[in-house]
């Protein structure tokens, strides 16, 4: 049997919010801890908050690790730092031979209902449905369809920052012909679901270097890709078109970005002026 190629990664994800004036009574939920799943083991994880706060941990409906905390003292800056050590390897997909007949089974359809339904970000629109219909008539199997959907998205969209926001929908991104990983993922999901292929949004991190040297910290980024159900969940990365493997760290899998946003909270006081996000990835083994 082949030795599974495995990396050990250290990920540090820091978010600092600054406010125009003092704020207080801040309640927050953060989702930035990698999950332990097929092909990935989280060895160590820690979340720190400044100003200091007591953290509580739970696992949400989608299986994501959530930390919650509240800060009551007055502050003008809030920093959340998540650090984790994760062993990653290529995901093994046990079955990718589902037929269109399999996907039409009513029980399967019901079991995966949430990954087939439209959501706020992945809403149906005529253009995307037409793209989906076209692929559906040409693809022999759902597996082919998934690959063709990725190609269609990569043909249409150019990776470019600054044109879309965290709340841009799939249809809007398709119209604008550009976007970031979140948009690539949402558009792909929209096409797959329109064809009746169950598909979910995956959020996490990506090490940018295929031949990463050990022990060198590089600036990485939050990343998003998708899983399509083609007999089993199979990962695809529509943004760069490469296989999902050692460089990918999974934090959450759900319907769309809305289910997995890394930092969600409310507070009382002045508006936030800016937010600094840095992700640093180090291959350590």
């Amino acid at each position: 049997m082949d030795r599974v190629n495995s990396w050990r990664l250290l990920v540090r994800h820091s978010t600092t919010s600054r406010y125009a004036a003092e704020v207080f009574a801040s309640y927050n939920e953060v989702r930035l801890t990698p999950m332990t799943d097929r092909g990935q083991v989280t060895v160590d994880e820690r979340v720190e908050v400044v100003p200091a706060a007591r953290l509580f941990r739970h696992v949400d409906y989608w299986g994501t690790i959530v930390h919650t905390f509240d800060v009551h003292g007055r502050h003008t800056e809030l920093t959340v730092l998540g650090s984790s050590i994760v062993d990653t390897s290529a995901r093994r997909v046990l079955d990718e031979d589902a037929t269109w007949g399999t996907l039409a089974l009513p029980t399967l359809h019901d079991d995966l209902y949430e990954y087939l339904s439209p959501t706020r970000f992945v809403a149906p629109c005529d253009t995307l449905s037409a793209v989906a219909d076209d692929i559906r008539t040409r693809a022999a199997t759902p597996s082919d369809a998934a690959r063709m959907a990725i190609d269609a998205v990569r043909d249409r969209l150019v990776y470019e920052r600054g044109h879309t926001t965290a709340s841009t929908s799939a249809a809007e991104a398709w119209e604008q012909r550009r976007g970031v990983c979140q948009d690539f993922a949402h558009v792909t999901l929209a096409i797959l679901r329109a064809m009746g292929v169950p598909a979910r949004y995956v959020s996490g991190y990506l090490h940018p270097d295929r031949d990463a040297p050990i022990g060198v910290a590089v600036s990485g980024e939050s990343h998003a890709w998708i899983d399509a159900w083609i007999g089993d969940w199979a990962p695809f990365d529509p943004t760069n078109g490469e296989p999902v493997g050692e460089r990918h760290v999974v934090v959450a899998q759900a319907r769309d970005y809305g289910d997995v946003s890394p930092l969600r909270g409310i507070y009382t006081g002045a508006a936030a002026t800016d937010q600094d996000v840095t992700v640093e990835v180090t291959r350590i083994g």
Binding site: T107, D110, D111, Y113, E114, S117
Partner: peptide, 10 residues
Amino acid sequence: HILPRRLVAS
């Protein structure tokens, strides 16, 4: 499958 997931999820 006593109750469709669809009804709960929606």
